[in-house]
Design a protein around this nucleic acid. Structure first.
Lengths: 187, 187
DNA sequence: CGCTAAATATGATACCCATCATGTAAATGT
DNA sequence: ACATTTACATGATGGGTATCATATTTAGCG
């Protein structure tokens, strides 16, 4: 059952999109190749026509989703608010791939690690550029510190089994970042 | 081959210690029951005499390691420095269980989530108590914000496949936290 | 319009792992 | 000392999953 060139390209895109959501939602290990293919509307047989292995799928999915992932470029305040919202915490499947997958990268192949590294590098740069009021040294510090706090807070908020404390982690981290950025720029 | 009561208790402790290291090093999924038992000097057969399932082992291991884990109680500055050191980044097996396992808790049982929640609650309290110079509202904000940044920075530093950038994430996060705490207390 | 190659489907295969069944020997209590 | 219980070892069992083999259908091309 051959399909058109362009149909195949679309299938591939759908596999990557669906894999990206499933991986963020359930983790790399808990998602099977067959599950990804079924979610993409295909069967498991065609998988190895698109990818050489599950590890290959993981690496290509990361490159795909991290390239698509923007955010932090425009209004930083709004971006931080959305990032540290209960809505984002509760939407891992559609949320930031760094918050969802960074911790699992340690156990993946070099290609996957490399994709994540590039994604982080450009994300830090993007946040830095959204802080033009700071001088360069403060800017980099604020970009890295804020990003670490944002990712850490979402990971912790998702781990916590107590709605009030989880909300508080998000809210207080938002206030902490806010204070950090304002005070540096005032200093 | 029965062993003494106290030998059994020691075996159990060794299983939990070894499991804690293996889980932090390789993740819950990548460690088999047999691997844990072998590392503890036993065979896989006796496992279900100690634990009702692998999920039970995970929950009890978390309770065990999070109870043992202190840190942040004394000199906060020194604790942050050690936490955000390359040495800690490179020692996941012996390092902070939150940095190593918090992101994986989402996919675990309620018992495991509960253990992690209690560990986080007391860790935040501990950090707050190490900031007596701040007034209560600032104290809580600083404790949560710093802890989120610390955990996030170690996770990111471990994910990054570039020594210079990884070191920089640790170092800049340390400076960011330092500035945040000092400036709040000066304000 | 027919040929061929390619994309996917269907159907193995082989391995790993959590869990259970049963055997065995030593500790504990009387 | 002896009986009994119990902690652990050895050895299944069953289910899941990555990967491979083969069949099928149709796009792409002459």
């Amino acid at each position: 059952m051959k399909v058109s060139r362009e149909q195949m390209a679309e299938n591939r895109r759908r596999i990557l999109d669906v894999a990206s959501r499933l991986f963020r939602d359930k983790g790399f290990d808990a998602v099977s190749v067959a599950e990804v293919m079924n979610a993409a509307g295909l069967t498991h047989g065609g998988f190895y026509g698109h990818f050489s292995s599950k590890d290959d799928l993981i690496a290509q999915t990361l490159a795909h989703v991290l390239a698509a992932d923007s955010g932090g470029g425009g209004d930083l305040r709004a971006y931080v608010d959305a990032y540290l919202s209960p809505r984002h915490r509760d939407n891992a499947a559609g949320g930031c791939p760094t918050a969802g997958l960074a911790a699992a990268i340690r156990h993946q192949t070099p290609a996957a690690r490399s994709a994540m590294t590039e994604g982080l590098r450009s994300q830090i740069d993007r946040i830095g550029k959204a802080l033009p009021e700071l001088d360069p040294a403060d800017r980099r510090r604020a970009a890295i510190g804020s990003w670490a706090a944002m990712v850490g807070a979402v990971i912790l908020a998702r781990a916590i089994d107590d709605a009030a404390l989880s909300d508080q982690v998000l809210e207080q981290t938002r206030a902490w970042i806010d204070a950090g950025i304002s005070q540096v720029s005032a200093g």
